[in-house]
Design a protein around this nucleic acid. Structure first.
Length: 327
DNA sequence: GTTGCCTTCGGCAGTTAGCG
DNA sequence: CGCTAACTGCCGAAGGCAAC
């Protein structure tokens, strides 16, 4: 009896970057509106995916391996899968949509139309999207010499009150689109339908390992918004009110705006540095970003963080510690 | 190689926040 | 109020880097 989340969802870089930028760009920066929109979109999507995970935990305790948020490459095409469920008999690709209101899947023009509060809005057709993903995934599997396996797609609507409509002849939508709460029964039906074992234990292990190894996360940085480093505000930001810069007073950071006192406020700021500036840092570079003058203080801060580093003396460089990804 | 510069590191002393 | 632990700057030694 195995039920294993092999690759767990983490907060997307897109969201982390957006938050960091909104903290660290001047209030009147022209790019703020775009970043705010992107962030809202990203957060809605992530919320939907997390809502789905809630239902996924209710899956029967069978032989399932779950991969959240995969990005793979076939020839020159990249494709991103919100959730992949693997069993020895079949694979399921889930595309999650966190859209509220009334949805109409239009088969003739392959579009998704959302009506909410008398406002009509068009979205990219998730059915086309998920079909592309499963075609590329099929090719990817073949490319890596894994035996063929039936692949089933679902477009999962995470918002329970969303109303889903489509003309009765749109069989693809009828079969593929579902609410998150329907998912468990849909997958249970699949376990009854696909009973022939297509992947040996060895092949399944190989596929698991390959998926982790070939996962290629999208690298987001400030260049996506055409922002240069000198537009970024320097100084430690307040964990409570985001005011920049906090002042260092006897072992703690003090906010001039809200009077918050925090001993470790610089940790978030150093995360921002790694996200916005570069993944390495020296004593001098960090002093500049934290807006402190003492090399000794900076050295003690750096030492306390236990970051991996290379070099001695003047040549010392510290690295962003990667979140441990074990399987 | 020599020189100057930068950083690390341990130790020391002065200062301060926080606690009983 | 007084004590203590923590914090900070400063010192000197050591070592790497870069320019001469």
């Amino acid at each position: 009896m195995i039920f294993l989340i092999v690759k767990e969802r983490t907060v997307p870089v897109k969201i982390k970057l957006g938050k960091a930028l909104l903290r660290r760009l001047p209030k009147n920066h022209p790019k703020r509106a775009t970043i705010e929109q992107d962030l809202a979109k990203g957060q809605a999507g992530y919320k939907g995916e997390e809502a789905l995970d809630f239902y996924l935990k209710r899956l029967p305790q069978k032989n399932f391996y779950i991969f959240q948020d995969l990005r793979l490459q076939h020839t020159y095409s990249y494709f991103q899968i919100d959730t992949l469920i693997l069993s020895p008999c079949f694979a399921v690709i889930l595309e999650v949509k966190n859209i509220s209101g009334t949805l109409y899947f239009d088969p003739y023009f392959q579009q998704l139309i959302r009506t909410m509060n008398d406002k009509v809005e068009g979205f990219q057709d998730p059915l086309t999207q998920v079909r592309r993903q499963s075609e590329l995934f099929k090719k990817w599997i073949t490319e890596h010499n894994i035996p063929d396996i039936p692949i089933k797609n679902f477009v999962v609507i995470s918002h329970p009150s969303t109303i889903i409509t489509t003309p009765p002849e749109n069989s693809q939508a009828l079969q593929t689109v579902c609410h998150a709460f329907q998912l468990v029964s849909k997958i249970e039906a699949l376990t009854n339908h696909f009973i022939k074992e297509k992947l040996s234990e060895k092949n399944l292990k190989k596929l698991n390992r390959l998926l982790i190894k070939k996962h290629n996360p999208l690298q987001y940085n400030i260049q996506h918004y055409n922002i240069s480093q000198n537009e970024i505000l320097k100084g430690v930001h307040c964990p409570e009110c985001s005011f920049i810069p906090m002042a260092r007073v006897q072992g703690a950071w003090v906010c001039a705006n809200c009077n918050t006192r925090a001993k470790d406020a610089h940790v978030e700021t150093i995360d921002d540095y790694f996200l916005l500036i570069r993944p390495t840092v020296t004593n001098k570079q960090l002093r500049q970003f934290l807006q402190i003058s003492s090399p000794d203080l900076c050295n003690r801060i750096l030492r306390a963080l236990n970051l991996p580093c290379t070099g001695k003396g003047k040549g010392r460089i510290y690295f962003q510690s990667e979140p441990l990804e074990k399987n």
